[in-house]
């Protein structure tokens, strides 16, 4: 079954075509790498898929809902984590999760237990009452991810979740992504680290508002006749 179905999705800002009739599907439980150059239209496409921005034309069904008519239901059924750290520094770890859990209307009777389970899985139980400000960046990224999936969304959008993170934490983060996907959650992730593209089930490469390539990392390397995704990228996104 498909979690995301995008059909000729387009966004224009005046004369500028930010996203140009893109079409693709993402399966349930799939880790889909959404790659592209800066300014290629990735963020605009993600905003449309997450119900934050209305498309100019075309269609997208996300978690079974139509982005043009059911944006509210989409927001309730997806998780989102952005490149810039999105938690409140002056709240504690627990308070942050409580805040987002409440916004997503997780029943109060359940919320505390769910937060404690989530923190236990990350081995952050001892840090529950520390201000987010005071914990290392690597933990913050994992915490932001745990917060984004606290309401058990069907799909998580991760926008450059590992930007600037050290090589060890980057790998720990991908381990979390894999664990989450293995429970049936669909992951759509953007990254500028090309080794991470290799961890995805399938990837797409966008340039100038179009999807130029789409397939498994192996397929794309064979198609282009190179040995790494970095080479595929450079070949297709020449300026």
């Amino acid at each position: 079954m498909n979690s995301i179905e995008v059909d000729h999705l387009t966004k224009k800002f005046g004369d500028f075509v930010a996203v140009n009739e893109i079409s693709f599907q993402v399966r349930e439980g799939e880790i889909f790498g959404f790659l592209g150059a800066n300014g290629a239209g990735k963020t605009t496409a993600i905003k449309m898929m997450s119900g934050l921005l209305q498309p100019t034309s075309g269609k997208a069904i996300v978690a079974g809902y139509d982005v043009t008519t059911q944006a509210k239901l989409i927001k309730r059924n997806i998780g989102y984590m952005s490149q810039r750290f999105s938690l409140y520094n002056d709240l504690t770890v627990f308070e942050n999760m409580q805040l987002f859990g409440t916004i997503y209307k997780i029943p109060r009777t359940e919320l505390k237990q769910r937060i404690m389970d989530s923190l236990a899985a990350l081995e952050l139980t001892k840090q529950a009452n520390l201000l987010v400000n005071s914990i290392p960046l690597g933990w913050k990224q994992k915490l932001a991810f745990a917060t984004a999936i606290l309401h058990k969304p069907k799909i998580v959008f991760l926008d450059e979740p590992t930007s600037g993170v050290d090589p060890i934490v980057r790998r720990e983060f991908w381990n979390l992504i894999y664990q989450t996907a293995s429970t049936g959650v669909t992951i759509l992730v953007t990254t500028h680290y090309m080794d991470e593209a290799e961890y995805c089930h399938r990837i797409s490469i966008m340039a100038d508002g179009n999807i130029r390539l789409l397939g498994t990392p192996e397929e794309l390397k064979q198609q282009v006749g190179v040995s790494t995704i970095n080479d595929v990228f450079v070949e297709y996104v020449k300026h």
């Binding site: 592209g36 150059a37 800066n38 290629a40 490149q83 450059e160 930007s163 600037g164 500028h192 090309m194 970095n230 990228f233 450079v234 996104v237 020449k238 300026h239």
Partner: peptide, 14 residues
């Protein structure tokens, strides 16, 4: 200071 953070691989190379 981090002139290439968040920059795509092609622009980084340039």
């Amino acid at each position: 200071d981090e002139p290439t953070t968040g920059v795509d691989p092609v622009s980084r190379k340039e």
